[in-house]
């Protein structure tokens, strides 16, 4: 609710900046880096491999980010984020969270909607709007 309150206050004041998505580089104990979701560290599967974008012992993170679009899972997530922005009515508040939930719920980053976004974003907005609507039932 605090997050929604911040969003509402910022939006009503015209202060919302649509900045680029934070890629959340996560570095393991041995320097391996995964992007988008810390939960992907240590995961290996045939479709996406080990999710490793590089190793900080051999390459700066800025270089990994510059080449991140070549990683299948990052490319899929970017596509999904754009899909969210184009089609989801909650995107202005949600901003596309979260990559890890897309993968662990759907085994893909292409999925546009997750249980996580329905319960933590959509339901929150609907419940708050219902609270302001005399008979409830905000669409």
């Amino acid at each position: 609710m605090d997050r929604l309150a911040d969003y509402l206050a910022a939006t009503r004041a015209g202060h919302v900046d649509h900045a680029p998505y934070e890629p959340i580089p996560t570095v393991s104990w041995d320097g391996q880096v995964v992007l988008l979701s810390p939960e992907l560290l240590g995961i290996t599967e045939p479709r996406y491999g080990d999710f490793i974008a590089g190793n900080v012992l051999h390459q700066p993170i800025t270089a990994m980010l510059a080449g991140a679009g070549d990683l299948d899972y990052v490319a899929e997530f970017v596509t999904a984020l754009n899909d969210c922005a184009d089609h989801c009515a909650f995107y202005d508040f949600c901003r596309g969270a979260q990559a890890g939930n897309r993968y662990f719920e759907h085994a893909s980053f292409i999925a546009r909607e997750t249980t996580y976004c329905r319960t933590t974003r959509q339901a929150l907005v609907r419940a708050a709007a219902d609270h302001l609507t005399p008979q409830g039932g905000a669409p």
């Binding site: 929604l4 509402l8 939006t11 009503r12 009515a89 909650f90 202005d92 508040f93 907005v125 609907r126 708050a128 709007a129 219902d130 302001l132 609507t133 905000a138 669409p139």
Partner: peptide, 12 residues
């Protein structure tokens, strides 16, 4: 933008 979000943004 969803109506629910608009309701909140435009609320008194």
């Amino acid at each position: 933008m969803t109506n629910a979000l608009a309701i909140l943004i435009n609320a008194a």
